[in-house]
Write a protein that binds this DNA or RNA. Structure first.
Length: 911
DNA sequence: CAGTGAGCGAGCTTCCGCTTGACTT
């Protein structure tokens, strides 16, 4: 007993660890890493002190040394590492059982690098948790796949370089805090491009007829509907016959309103008879079991869940053991699951509903990594929804998953598709069409179709949305050619072609999956990111782009075209596969991406993100509305989006107005309406001008309304007096008296001995007095009205550096810097407490309590600052792209910027 | 996007993929 070897098995998910513990029994300790355990530092606070100040610290990747990454264990991962190290002390072997995909392999490698185990290490993989699978995994360990780890690291570094080099371009050219990335920027572009299609779309209108026909008392159903589809021997135009410009693209006949009305009238006298009946058998196969994206789509369509909600509920079901892992790109079921599904289908519906051999589904996802199974009920016999005894969202989502899984192992549905054509001969020819092309119509053709299910097969268990809609199709009676029909009702219907629909959360994610962008674990967060950045917002379920998204997308498309190319990620995936297969070098991939391929240095990210002179910030944010000749633009500004005409008149664009709603007419209307809310306070008795209170860019203010003399150019028109409210006043309570008082500013305080005027006024930094070019801040807003000439002269006589600054004593005096002899003090500044020696300033780190800052620490901080130099010198740009991939690696330091740690195989053979 | 005078210490924002954080007497 005591001699039996003890093993630590590390998996990624705690839930999986619990399940595994049950199967492995004594001798095994199973613990989880909870995902990745370390990563590149996200910001300066995560960069270890010894790397601070290095030019590449911001990136966490030393782009000058073969893109060596700097990895740190973030604060929330430290306890995990501590726990694992603790457990490692008492075992004889370590099994790294992270997922068998790129990320999982990398997690295993990071674990190895961080835990530095002294015991033998094995890499173990399994895709399903069954006794057999686990036994096989234990019996067949392998070594860590360093090429696969390399592929992951390349992906990680490239994403970092993209995100952290391009985002700052947006800060400079569009707005601070914006972001760009390989995934989010394409997601945003998709939504923007779709909106552009909608804006360019021209609708076409056409008409048709809907006839209700009576097949006689013996028929069931007796009445059915048929739609006009032909006239004489021409096809009648439908939506598909028009293109996005509203132009007819076929030789179909377009029925207009008059024609439709005339036809309806004429057809009341016509003879209707069945022309042809066509019946075709059809079969339908069940859909594959769920993977993450299809679950999100179906939960959205059938249950109305957002992707976030779907994933949250699925996580709950997974953690409580009801379903298998929910972040997967695989549609394959384990043997165990196939057996369970077939057994359940047979028990519930009978032998006829289960095919002779199991159905096998292959993944259609191109970059699928298949580390997990499809999403299905857990276990080797499924709990039916009733047995599961779940409630609420969990019950609904479980039922959906259960149905889809069981149905996926059931037989095809079979049925008959019937399509009927009915001809109506007009008693009199009808003349239709406009002057140029009039035609005679003598015959109208109507069509009706219906589907009947003869054997439901899998539909017994699971009907998808398409089936539901077809279920609503009216049944057709038995009909025979030449059978006479009576017209019961006839109605004209008008139709318009519709622009392409906006993306919804699930359809956007499905599109990203098709483009191989993003992973199951990130689909829901992609939506969160582009929403949080205000690139898109939801209108109902539709994703609508903002004008900000238009501006950002335009900048990227015009200046970083390669990075937002829809094929970029797919091509990258190919490269990563080559690296994983040992057929490509990561260094070359990164070099080409960052510095440009040899001879194409200009196309490297580094040059593109550095030379910003070409990017015209104003142009990027300006979009003409309608005809550019109209001179009306929509512009994305710091304070929101507005429209502007040639005379610089401006009006805000309401936040909930979708870009495709902002037509030229709407823009003109916006410009014609006075902006924003305002409150009329009354009339200035002195001038007769109305006085209003408004909220502006700098907060609430009052102003007088002058009649606009349209004949003068804007710059020549008289400017109305304006004044900010005092902080004691509010927009909805300010009175006319207050306003008049405010508008009386600036106040002439008096004239000094030299005859120079001293005035009191309110400004950007608050109240102040002014004498020529000299000024002093006043203590309060009220003092604008009370300050006397004497007080003003006194203020002006004092040096301006007095006042606040002199009053602000240092928070602490630390003593003299041993290096320079200068006194070090802590002062309170706009950005918090900082240490200064009079020349250099350093903000006190947040983690450091001010009263505990020692002289030594302060001196070190100042010294570090001094070492950086007085002004951050412009980074010298590399002139030669690296072309020698085989450079000596950096001396392997403790911070593990070097990747060449020995393989775990070192101890794999433990005999 | 209402207009208006100074002078002081900057430094941060951001990526994509893995995963679930937790307590206290």
């Amino acid at each position: 007993m005591a001699n039996a070897p003890r093993r630590l098995v590390i998996v990624e998910s705690p839930t999986k660890a619990t399940m595994l513990t049950r199967f492995l029994g004594s001798g095994y300790v199973v613990e989880s890493s909870r995902g990745h355990i370390r990563d590149l530092p996200t910001n300066a606070s995560e960069v270890p002190a010894k790397y601070k100040g290095l030019p590449w610290a911001r990136l966490g990747v030393d782009v000058e040394d073969d893109f060596a990454p700097l990895y740190v264990v973030s604060a929330d991962k430290k306890p995990v590492i501590r726990k694992l190290k603790e457990l490692l002390k008492d075992v004889d072997e370590l099994y790294l059982a992270t997922d068998e995909d790129r990320e999982g392999e990398a997690i295993a490698w990071h674990l190895l690098a961080e835990l530095k185990p002294k015991v033998p290490v094995k890499r173990m993989v399994f895709h399903e948790i069954t006794p057999e699978a686990i036994a096989a995994a234990v019996a067949n360990p392998r070594e860590l796949d360093i090429d696969l780890v390399d592929a992951q690291e390349t992906r990680r570094i490239l994403d970092r370089l993209y995100g952290y080099e391009v985002s700052p371009v947006l800060w400079k050219k569009v707005m601070p805090k914006l972001s760009a990335g390989r995934v989010q920027s394409v997601a945003t572009r998709l939504v923007v491009d779709r909106e552009r299609e909608r804006m360019a779309f021209t609708s076409a209108s056409y008409w048709d007829l809907l006839a209700t026909l009576d097949a006689g008392a013996a028929a069931t159903p007796r009445k059915f509907d048929a739609r006009l589809t032909g006239l004489n021997d021409w096809k009648v135009a439908r939506g598909a016959d028009f293109d996005s410009d509203g132009k007819l693209i076929s030789d179909a006949f377009v029925v207009d309103e008059k024609c439709a009305g005339d036809l309806a009238e004429a057809l009341k006298q016509a003879r209707f008879a069945v022309d042809s009946v066509e019946a075709k058998p059809f079969t339908r196969r069940p859909a594959a079991p769920f993977r993450t994206t299809t679950l999100q789509q179906e939960a959205g369509r059938k249950l109305g869940f957002t992707t976030d909600r779907t994933m949250r509920v699925a996580q709950e079901l997974y953690e409580s053991g009801y379903i298998t892992y929910m972040r997967t790109d695989s549609v394959s079921l384990s043997e165990q699951a196939i057996t369970a599904a077939r057994k359940q289908a047979r028990a519930l519906y009978g032998d006829d509903y289960v095919p002779a051999s199991p159905r096998v589904y292959a993944s259609k996802v191109k970059n699928a990594q298949e580390a997990h199974e499809a999403i299905r009920p857990a276990g080797d016999s499924f709990r039916t929804p009733a047995q599961a005894k779940l409630v609420g969202d969990q019950a609904r989502l479980y039922e959906l998953i259960w149905q889809r899984t069981v149905a996926s192992q059931m037989t095809d549905a079979r049925g008959q598709a019937v399509s009927v054509k009915i001809a109506a001969e007009l008693a009199q020819r009808l003349r239709a069409g406009a002057e140029m092309a009039t035609v005679d119509i003598h015959r109208a053709v109507f069509s009706a179709s219906g589907r009947t299910i003869t054997f439901p097969g899998f539909l017994k268990a699971y009907a998808d949305v398409a089936d539901d809609e077809q279920g609503e199709q009216a049944k057709l009676p038995q009909l025979a050619p030449d059978q006479h029909l009576d017209l019961s009702e006839i109605a004209t219907e008008s139709h318009q072609t519709k622009p392409p629909a906006r993306y919804t959360e699930p359809t956007l994610i499905a599109k990203l999956e098709e483009l191989e962008i993003g992973r199951p674990s990130t689909y829901a967060s992609i939506i969160r990111t582009i929403t949080a950045r205000d690139y898109v917002y939801k209108k109902g379920t539709a994703l609508v782009p903002t004008w900000l998204a238009f501006a950002v997308t335009r900048l990227l498309v015009e200046h970083f075209p390669r990075l937002v190319d829809y094929q970029f990620t797919a091509a990258l995936e190919d490269k990563l596969d080559e690296i994983a297969g040992g057929d490509a070098q990561r260094l070359q991939v990164l070099n080409d991406f960052f510095y440009g391929a040899p001879g194409h240095e200009r196309e490297g990210l580094h040059d593109m993100a550095t030379d910003l002179g070409d990017i015209d910030a104003r142009a990027v944010s300006t979009f003409p509305i309608g005809d550019p000749e109209a001179g009306i633009n929509v512009r994305v500004g710091r304070y929101g989006t507005y429209v502007e005409d040639a005379e610089a008149n401006r009006a805000n664009v309401p936040e909930d107005m979708a870009p495709d709603e902002l037509t030229l007419e709407v823009a003109k209307q916006l410009l014609a309406t006075p902006a924003g809310e305002e409150r009329e306070l009354g009339t200035d008795p002195a001038t007769g001008h109305p006085i209003v209170a408004r909220t502006g860019r700098y907060g609430p203010y009052v102003t007088e309304v002058l009649e606009d003399d349209e004949s003068l150019p804007k710059s020549k028109r008289p400017k109305p007096r304006t004044a900010s409210l005092f902080s004691s006043m509010q927009l909805d309570t300010v009175t006319l008296d207050d306003a008049l008082k405010l508008l009386s500013l600036p106040r002439l305080v008096g004239t000094d001995d030299e005859g120079v005027e001293i005035t009191a006024q309110n400004g950007r930094y608050g109240p102040y007095i002014k004498r020529g070019n000299d000024s002093r801040t006043l203590p309060s807003e009220e003092s604008l009205f009370t300050v006397t000439l004497e007080q003003a002269k006194e203020l002006l006589a004092a040096p301006r550096t007095r006042g606040r600054r002199a009053a602000a004593a240092p928070l602490a005096e630390l003593g003299d810097d041993p290096a320079t002899g200068k006194p070090l003090v802590i002062k309170d500044g706009r950005f918090g407490p900082y240490i200064t020696d009079g020349e250099y300033n350093v903000t006190v780190p947040k983690s450091q309590p001010i009263n505990e800052v020692s002289l030594e620490v302060a001196a070190d901080l100042i010294a570090a600052k001094r070492a950086k130099g007085p002004a951050p010198a412009k980074k010298a740009r590399r002139t030669s792209a690296k072309s020698s991939p085989s450079k000596a690696t950096k001396a392997s330091g403790s911070a593990s910027t070097s990747k060449k740690t020995p393989k775990p195989a070192s101890g794999a053979s433990s005999a």
